[in-house]
């Protein structure tokens, strides 16, 4: 796979505070890479260095096989698209005009019409930016990142503060970008977002990347056990319960089984209910999430 960005041993200090303590990241063409971490972990510093907003400290950064010294050169920026957190644009300008402005920054740019169609804002093209809703504003922010038809797009917390519907539509947009072959660097602290979108994830904490893998593997390896909660129509005898191979706990008014292999356990449960003629009601599954991964790796929650 072609490496688009490669970061090796990146360090950055502010005075005595070491924000990044040697970070390695690789981005491959066409993937969505998730960069997760709590506030103050070094997430923003890393992204801003890659976006060219901050000078890197020590370490090696490569964009498109070209080593970056100090600042990201303009010809590299030509191939990068950036969406910052909650960007607002100049008031009293229309969506189309904002896109024209951004198009003028690049040597080669798509026409505003094309971009507007891509982000499905045809109806809003002549609206003033201050009249856009939060979701529409974020679509516009993404649109500005697309004007130069970039190879890689940095998305910094793209759905913060959006309602579920807007969030869903932003996700759709991101998936579409991936399908068009774009490489995406996504930072977020919404676990479900990372889980839903990302091909690979790195988790950063206290200036260090503590783990990198696919979401699936992360959950499998660090997420702990899945839980199956259920009730029965009549209270089964203890001996009946003991017949189950899995360990059953009584939690409040229901039973809980913790398991590593949810399919197998479910099959067993079904067998068991048939065997003893017990009707299982209210069955629910709780699978581990990245939140649990983070908790198990660092001992604290992501949003603490």
């Amino acid at each position: 796979m072609e490496k688009i960005v490669e970061v090796k041993g990146l360090r950055k200090r502010y005075g005595h505070f070491e924000a990044l303590k040697g970070i390695d990241i690789v981005l491959y063409r066409g993937e969505i890479f998730g960069f997760l971490g709590p506030n103050g972990a070094g997430k923003t510093t890393t992204v801003e260095i890659l976006e060219g907003l901050r000078k890197p400290g020590e370490g090696e950064i490569t964009f498109f096989n070209e080593k970056i010294h100090n600042a990201i050169p303009p010809h590299v920026k030509e191939k990068i698209g950036v969406v910052l957190q909650e960007t607002r644009f100049l008031d009293h300008l229309k969506v189309r005009e904002i896109l024209e402005l951004f198009a003028s920054f690049f040597k080669q740019a798509k026409s505003p019409e094309e971009i507007i169609e891509m982000v499905q804002m045809e109806e809003k093209a002549d609206d003033y930016t201050e009249n856009l809703s939060g979701g529409q504003r974020q679509r516009l922010a993404i649109a500005t990142a697309l004007v130069n038809d970039p190879e890689i797009i940095f998305l910094d917390e793209p759905t913060v503060g959006l309602d579920p519907q807007s969030r869903e539509s932003v996700w759709k947009l991101i998936r579409m970008l991936k399908n068009n072959g774009k490489t995406i660097f996504l930072t977020t602290h919404y676990m479900e977002e990372a889980q839903a979108l990302c091909d690979r994830i790195s988790i950063i904490d206290r200036g260090k990347i503590i783990v990198s893998d696919t979401p699936k593997n992360l959950v499998k390896n660090y997420g702990g056990k899945s839980e199956i909660d259920f009730r029965c129509n009549s209270i089964p005898l203890k001996s009946t319960i003991d017949d189950l191979k899995s360990n059953v706990n009584v939690v409040d008014d229901h039973f809980r089984i913790e398991t590593d292999d949810i399919t197998k356990t479910l099959e067993e449960l079904v067998e068991w209910s048939k065997k003893f003629n017990i009707t299982i009601t209210d069955i629910s599954l709780v699978e581990p999430t990245l939140e649990d991964v983070f908790l198990s790796l660092t001992g604290r929650g992501l949003r603490d």
């Binding site: 950036v82 644009f89 920054f105």
Partner: peptide
């Protein structure tokens, strides 16, 4: 102040625009 507070300046800085 508006451009700075709303990160527009940073957004500009991330482009090759001089």
């Amino acid at each position: 102040s508006f451009l700075r507070a709303n990160r527009v300046m940073r957004r500009y800085a991330s482009t090759p625009m001089n």
